[in-house]
Structure formats: structure tokens, C-alpha cells
């Protein structure tokens, strides 16, 4: 007993964990959670199903889509559409899943009371938040890369099976797609972190986030904007609308994207700036809340 306790003797001049150590610890925590794998796995899986599998099966059965011939369905699955096919789900269902991940990451710390243990004794609050966000960005970057890789693989298989041309986009276009996809993913994730922190829990944060992503923005765009000019203008400032506009811009003006939420309401440059502003605001507000509020 004494020997064990002695090993817990007081350190002199010990410093709290460094940022890389915190990022590593957060990554380990994320990797061990089934919820992380479910949420991050669902997005690429749904993406593949709706962008490639369903159109290809429809083509194989000779179906047409909105008057387009079956060949148009096949063309939409080929490698030249890689960026659009890998990212088109991000503005809507991908966003909902990643916002949920961010809310779980931040909100569960309150639900389990672990934030008190961590911050009462540990590193500075801003450092902890930076570590959490960097860990989140790391897993989101991996997921965007996996989505691109999976889409490329399945597109290549379809092209091979149908003896269709495999015209791959250039490296710069893929890099732009990766960067844009990561910006959209990180913005949704950071907004989830903000909701989880602001509401000090997961349930309400996830509920409100999903209602916003899946219902409110859709109502503004599809119901309110066509009726009132003020909403026509206001929709240009919504995160989902800008995410959809950015993905539409990355897909290219000559590439029709059927996925709901992917509409070029604003141009790609403006969409990137607005998303960047949402990301910066979400991070700043989360840091402010974390630093200013008492730990209950």
C-alpha cells in the first residue's frame, strides 16, 4: 500500500498535457466509441448507395430518371463524377450525422461529468477544446478521404464492368474536392460541438441540430423563400444552403447532382467564405462558453 501510494508522490513542476497528447487521447477515445464508427461509417455507406449503387442498378434494369435515358444514369456513376459522387450527401444527411458526432463529442462530457474531472485539474480549457477539435478534424479528414477512395473504387468497378471510359478528375480537382468536403464536414461537426457545449448535454443538442439540418433549412428554402423575398435573401446565409452550393460548385456547372440539398444558390467562393465564418463563429462561441461558465 505504502509503496503504491509513494509512487503517487507529489511531482515538482509537472505540466499538464501538451496539445499533441490531448489530441492523441481524444483520438483514442473517439476510436473506442461505437457511435463514432456508426456515424462516420453511415455517411460514406449512404453516399455509395444513393450516388452509385441505386443509379447503377436502375441502369442495369433499363430504368430512366426524370425522362433521362438509362445511359445518363450510367454516366452519373463513372469516375469523372468522382467529386460530386463522393460529397453530394454532405450538405444534408452527411451534415446531420457529423453534427450528431460533434454534439456527442462535447455533450457527453457534461452528461458523464468528465469535464469537471478534466478541467478541475487538467490543462487549460482552450487547450482541451483545441485538442478535441483537432481530433475531430482528423477523423473527419479521414472520413472524407475514405469517401473519395470508396467512391473511386466503386466507380472504377462500374466503368470496368461496363467498358465505359474512366476519365478521372485531375489531382487539383480532387484536392479541391477534399478541401471543400472537409470544410463542410468540419463546419457541421463544429456546430455540433457548439450545441453540445451550449446545452451541456447530447439529447437536446442532437434533437435541435437534426431539426435544423433536416427540417428548418428545407422549409426556408422550399417553402418560405419562394413566397417572401426576405427569405430568398436570408437563405443565402444558411449553413446547409452554403454547404450545398459549395458541393454543387465543386461538382462542376455541367454536372447535374440529384441529391437533395445540393443546389447552387450562391457561387462556390461565397459558399466557402460563409462556411468558414460559421466554422470560426462556432469555435469562438464554444471557447467563450467553455471559458466563461462555471463547471456545475
Amino acid at each position: 500500500m505504502s509503496a503504491t501510494a509513494a509512487s503517487l508522490a507529489l511531482p515538482a513542476g509537472r505540466t499538464s498535457g501538451s496539445l499533441p497528447a490531448i489530441v492523441g487521447a481524444e483520438l483514442l477515445k473517439l476510436a473506442r466509441r461505437p457511435a463514432t464508427w456508426v456515424l462516420l461509417g453511415l455517411w460514406p455507406a449512404l453516399q455509395l448507395v444513393f450516388s452509385l449503387v441505386i443509379p447503377y442498378v436502375s441502369y442495369s434494369r433499363g430504368s430512366s430518371y426524370e425522362g433521362s435515358p438509362p445511359e445518363a444514369l450510367l454516366a452519373s456513376t463513372l469516375p469523372d463524377r468522382l467529386v460530386a459522387n463522393a460529397l453530394s450527401g454532405l450538405p444534408l444527411f452527411g451534415g446531420a450525422l457529423l453534427l450528431t458526432l460533434g454534439a456527442l463529442l462535447a455533450g457527453s462530457e457534461y452528461g458523464w461529468g468528465t469535464l469537471k474531472t478534466l478541467l478541475a485539474q487538467g490543462p487549460r480549457r482552450t487547450t482541451v477544446l483545441a485538442g478535441q477539435l483537432l481530433a475531430l478534424v482528423t477523423v473527419l479528414a479521414g472520413t472524407v478521404a475514405v469517401s473519395l477512395a470508396l467512391t473511386a473504387g466503386v466507380s472504377a468497378l462500374i466503368a470496368g464492368a461496363e467498358s465505359a471510359p474512366a476519365d478521372w478528375p485531375g489531382a487539383a480537382e480532387i484536392a479541391r474536392g477534399f478541401g471543400g468536403g472537409l470544410l463542410v464536414a468540419t463546419t457541421w461537426g463544429a456546430m455540433g460541438v457548439l450545441l453540445g457545449t451550449a446545452l451541456r448535454g447530447t439529447a437536446l443538442a442532437i434533437g435541435l441540430g437534426l431539426v435544423w439540418v433536416l427540417a428548418v433549412e428545407s422549409l426556408v428554402v422550399n417553402v418560405a423563400a419562394p413566397l417572401l423575398d426576405v427569405f430568398e435573401t436570408a437563405q443565402q446565409a444558411l449553413p446547409g444552403v452554403n454547404a450545398g452550393s459549395l458541393v454543387a460548385a465543386l461538382a462542376g456547372s455541367d454536372t447535374p447532382v440529384r441529391t437533395p440539398g445540393v443546389v447552387a444558390v450562391v457561387d462556390g467562393g461565397q459558399a466557402a467564405w460563409v462556411l468558414g465564418a460559421f466554422l470560426a463563429a462556432a469555435v469562438a462561441l464554444t471557447a467563450l462558453l467553455l471559458n466563461r461558465r462555471d463547471l456545475t
Partner: peptide, 19 residues
Amino acid sequence: VYPDLTVRENARHFAALYG
């Protein structure tokens, strides 16, 4: 503590955070 991590993972997580 984190209920979805093991006891050791919890302790090592906090150890990393505390340096």
C-alpha cells in the same frame, strides 16, 4: 468517467491529458 471505455483506457486518457 467514460462508461464506454475500459477502466484502463479511462485512466490512460486522463494520464495523457495531465501529461
